[in-house]
Each structure stands twice: as C-alpha cells, then as structure tokens.
Computed example of a mutant assay.
Amino acid sequence: MHSEFELITRYLAPAPTGTETGVALGVGDDCALLDPTPGERLVVSVDTSVADVHFPASAPPDAIGHRALAVSLSDLAAMGARARWCVMSLTLPEADGDWVAAFASGFHALCRTTGVVLTGGDVSRGELAVGVTVMGEVPPAAALTRAGARPGDYLAVTGCLGGGAGGLSRWWEGDRDLASPLLRRYLLPQPRLAAGVALRGLASSAIDISDGLLADLGHLRQASGGGAVLTPDALPLAEGLVKALGEQGARQAALRGGDDYELLVSLPPECLEEARHRLAALELPLTVIGHLTSEPGLSGVEASSPPGWQHFPGETP
C-alpha cells in the first residue's frame, strides 16, 4: 500500500523543467511556476471525469488516463490553442500501485504526443474520479470562440461522428476488444489540437463535440445568434457504426451520442477550400453538414429534448 506522496513521486513525477517546456518549477512544491510565451494569451480549461458517469470504472486504467487528459485537451483544440501544461487531481478508492502505474502510463503517453507537461496535482481517497486542468497559448487575435458565426457560413465537422456513442454501446454489450475501431473511438479519443491551430484565421466559430452534435451546435448557435439547417445524410459516420447500430441508430449516435471530441466549426464559404487543404495535410477530412441562417431555430432534423448529454437536465436553449 502506497501513501499519496509515494504515488505522486513514483508515478506522477517528476515533470521536466527548462526553457523549452516553460516550466520553471514543476511537481513537488505548493505551486508550479510557469513561463508563458511573451505576447500570447493563456488558455485554461478544466474537466472532471467520474467513474461510471464519464467512463466505465472497469475500463483499462491506461485508457482512463488517456481519456481524462484527451477530453480536456479537446477544449484547447476548439479554441485553436497550442497545448502546454496540465495539472491533475486523482481520487482513488484505494492506493493500488499497479493501477496507478497503468493509469499514469496512458496519461503520460498522451502528454508526450501532444507536447503537454504535467506540472502538479493531488491524490486523495474517495470514489474514482480524475480532474484535469489544461493550459495552452494562442495569439491574442487568433483564438477561436463559440461566437462569431454569421448567416450563410457553412457548418462543418472534422473526422467522423458517432464513434464515441457506438463504442460505449459495444462496451456495455460486453465487447472488450480494444482493437475495435468503435471502442477505441470511445476509450482513446484523439484531441484535434493540430486541426484547431490549422483553422485559425478561417473558422468564424468553433466548439468541440463532447455532449452530442445537436447539443453542442445549440451552444454555438446561442453564442453566435441565429439558426441552422442540418443535412443529416451528409454526416460522416464512424467506421463500423452502421453495422453495430443499424442505419437509424448510427444517425442518432452521430447527432446525439456525444463523446466524439471532433471539432464543429462555422466557415465563410470562401474559406472552405483552404480549410480543407490545411486539414488534408493532417490527413483529416472536413465535411460540410449544413449552414447557418438568420432565422432562429434548427431545421433538417427532428427536434428532441434533450438533444444530447446533460448532467442535470433542465430547460434546453
């Protein structure tokens, strides 16, 4: 049995320091000391992942570690930010060193591939949960926000949709094959950080798809004003989704399922081809799924409430 300090020292530290990381002082003190790039704005977001709410408690611990960081980094991607640092709080029912080692392996692996440095955190006892705060940077005039879309702008999504919901469905049906594309889409989402940076100066608004396409489009519409027309037949469906859920089920997963962590963006028509060109260099498709209108409301799909995931369902805008 390890103490919380032993768990931090053995599995969650040390963090690299130095000029190239922007970390003057990392794990091991009361606070981290960070050196943001001069002239850039700091971008900060926090997410909490709770066992059997955001992920199955029985999922592989390395996947839980990857996923907890990925869903937070997805928010930075939606802002067009470059990811730099993170802090993490880990709540555990018991001090299981093997579990924490595997969890840390998945967390640190995604840190390495995205250039993020873990600079501090906390370990405590309780029901399994992971809180991750991520920090990034963006030039002051380059940040993508939910506001800014205009009537006539295209609505487009990166990658494909429905895989998160389809993968979760497969898990609860007993599929534990991590080679399954759908299961990997759910357990190991890939934050679209490079895509967010590539879309700077082109997208008029952006949001990541975490709660479901319709729900997140609602947030974007509310921030920008106006309405939207969707073309459901244009939705890019994840590999294996129709086979797993059927045509109708696949469309519903893409519209309302959530956990895709793709980017939903609005684009002036004259920016579409350049946006596709930039994302093609990342081997990532960009699919037009509708457009924005001056009239409020949403057309092209059947209304339902709630349109996607909500922790506390209430009135939906």
Score class of each variant (00 low, 15 high):
Thr21Arg: 05
Gly166Asp: 05
Thr113Asn: 09
Ala238Tyr: 01
Glu4Ile: 11
Ser58Val: 13
Thr9Gln: 12
Asp96Glu: 02
Ala81Gly: 01
Glu283Asp: 14
Glu274Trp: 00
Arg278Leu: 03
Cys86Trp: 03
Leu161Val: 01
Leu118Tyr: 08
Ser224Gly: 06
Gln310Phe: 11
Thr114Ser: 14
Thr158Asn: 07
Asp96Lys: 03
Ala244Gly: 12
Leu264Arg: 04
Arg176Tyr: 05
Ala223Gly: 03
Met88Arg: 13
Leu12His: 09
Val116Leu: 11
Val288Trp: 04
Arg185Gly: 07
Arg278Met: 02
Gly218Ile: 02
Gln248Pro: 03
Gly227Asn: 07
Arg278Val: 00
Ala203Asp: 04
Asp211Cys: 07
Ala13Arg: 03
Ala254Leu: 12
Gly300Ile: 13
Pro285Ile: 15
Pro139Lys: 10
Phe103Tyr: 11
Ala147Thr: 05
Gly136Leu: 12
Gly97Arg: 03
Thr293Pro: 04
Arg125Gly: 07
Arg256Trp: 02
Arg185Gln: 05
Val87Gly: 11
Ala149Tyr: 09
Glu315Ser: 11
Arg150Lys: 13
Asp98Trp: 05
Ile207His: 03
Ala141Thr: 06
Thr19Arg: 15
Leu73Lys: 01
Gly65Tyr: 05
Ala95Val: 04
Gly152Arg: 11
Ser74Arg: 07
Gly167Gln: 08
Arg185Ser: 10
Gly18Leu: 11
Ala228Glu: 00
Leu110Cys: 05
Leu12Phe: 10
Glu273Ser: 12
Thr114Asn: 08
Ala223Pro: 00
Gly18Ser: 08
Cys271Ile: 03
Glu20Lys: 06
Ala179Cys: 05
Val71Thr: 11
Ala15Phe: 09
Tyr154Glu: 09
Cys86Arg: 10
Leu220Phe: 04
Ala215Pro: 15
Leu279Ala: 01
Glu40Leu: 08
Gln222Asn: 15
Gly196Leu: 02
